[in-house]
Design a protein around this nucleic acid. Structure first.
Length: 272
DNA sequence: AAACCCCTCAACCGCCCTGTA
DNA sequence: TTACAGGGCGGTTGAGGGGTT
C-alpha cells in the first residue's frame, strides 16, 4: 500500500507518557469522545501522534481495564483460544473482558508460550524436569514480585491513592485455591508453573467482583466530576456517543469463537 | 557490592482493512 | 472504480527493575 506515516514525527513527543499527558487525554475523551484520533492530540493540546493517543487510551487509560495478574482461568482460556485462533490477539482479548490485546500478547510471549514449550519438552524427555528448573524458579520469583507491585505499573494511575489500594485489594495475590490447581494439567512441570501463577492469580469470582463500579479514580478531579465509575463499557460508549460495544463484530466473533472452541473440543488438547 | 542476566510491559512501527468521496 | 484517510492489528523493541553469580 505504501501509505504515508500517520503523523508527522517532528515536534511530537515519544516514549513514556507523563501524568499530565494522561490527564489531558482522559479529560479530553471524557468531554468529547474520540471521533477522530488523528485530530485528537491537536485538540487536546497533546504533542503526540493520534495513534499513540489511541494506544494509550485503549491499553492503559480506559476505565474498564482490568489490571493485575491473570487468573489461572484466564491463562487457561488464552491458551485454548490461541490454539484455535492463533495470534489473533484482539479476537482473544474480546473473550477476556477488561484485558487488552497488548496485555494478552505480552503474557503469551513472556509466560504462556514458555510454559507450553516447557511442557512439550518435559513430555518429550521422560523425567526431564532438570532443564529449565532454574529458570522457573526465577520466574516464580519474578511473578511473585509482579504480584507484589501490581499498582506500580501505572505512573499516572498510581498517582491516585484510590487506585493503588483498590487494585491491590481487588487483585489480591495471596489466594491459592485447590480447585484452581485441580483445573490444571497433568504434568508435574505444569503444576509447578501453574501453582506459581495461582499465587498471583485470583479466583474468577474475585475478578468479577472487581467491577467497573468499584474501579478507582484515575484522577480524583476527573472521576469525582463524572459518573464514569458507574458505567459499564456500553454505557460509557453511549455517553461518549460511540457505537455500542455489542457490535455486529462482537457477535461475529462470538459465533466464530464458539465454532472454533467446539472444533477444538474434538481435537486432542493434551497440551493443556 | 557490583556486574551481568533475564523478565516484564509500555510503546512504537508498519501493514492491512474498511469506509467514503 | 479508484484513491485516500483513518482505525485496527500483530510484531517488535527497549527501558527499567529484580534476581543471580
Amino acid at each position: 500500500m505504501g501509505r504515508a506515516p500517520c503523523c508527522q514525527k517532528e515536534g511530537l513527543r515519544r516514549g513514556a507518557w507523563s501524568a499530565e499527558e494522561d490527564q489531558r487525554l482522559v479529560e479530553y475523551i471524557r468531554q468529547h469522545g474520540h471521533p477522530n484520533w488523528r485530530a485528537l492530540p491537536r485538540h487536546a493540546g497533546l504533542l503526540r501522534c493520534g495513534k499513540s493517543c489511541r494506544l494509550r487510551w485503549i491499553n492503559y487509560l480506559r476505565p474498564d481495564i482490568k489490571r493485575g495478574n491473570f487468573t489461572a482461568d484466564e491463562e487457561d482460556l488464552i491458551v485454548r483460544l490461541h490454539q484455535s485462533l492463533g495470534n489473533r490477539w484482539s479476537a482473544i482479548a474480546a473473550q477476556l473482558p477488561g484485558r487488552t490485546d497488548n496485555e494478552i500478547k505480552n503474557v503469551w510471549h513472556t509466560q504462556l508460550k514458555k510454559r507450553l514449550e516447557d511442557d512439550r519438552e518435559a513430555a518429550a524427555v521422560a523425567g526431564g524436569a532438570g532443564a529449565g528448573r532454574k529458570q522457573k524458579a526465577r520466574k516464580s520469583k519474578a511473578v511473585a514480585k509482579k504480584a507484589a507491585d501490581v499498582d506500580g505499573a501505572a505512573p499516572f494511575l498510581t498517582a491516585s491513592p484510590g487506585l493503588s489500594s483498590s487494585v491491590s485489594s481487588g487483585v489480591t495475590c495471596s489466594t491459592v485455591t485447590d480447585s484452581a490447581t485441580a483445573a490444571v494439567s497433568s504434568s508435574a512441570d505444569n503444576a509447578v508453573t501453574t501453582s506459581a501463577s495461582h499465587q498471583l492469580g485470583t479466583k474468577a469470582e474475585e475478578m468479577e467482583s472487581f467491577s467497573s463500579a468499584e474501579f478507582p479514580p484515575i484522577d480524583e478531579s476527573f472521576w469525582s466530576s463524572a459518573d464514569v465509575m458507574d458505567m459499564d463499557l456500553g454505557a460509557m460508549d453511549e455517553e461518549l456517543s460511540l457505537p455500542s460495544s455489542s457490535s455486529t463484530r462482537d457477535d461475529d466473533m462470538e459465533f466464530w469463537l464458539k465454532m472454533l472452541l467446539e472444533a477444538g473440543d474434538m481435537r486432542d488438547l493434551s497440551v493443556l
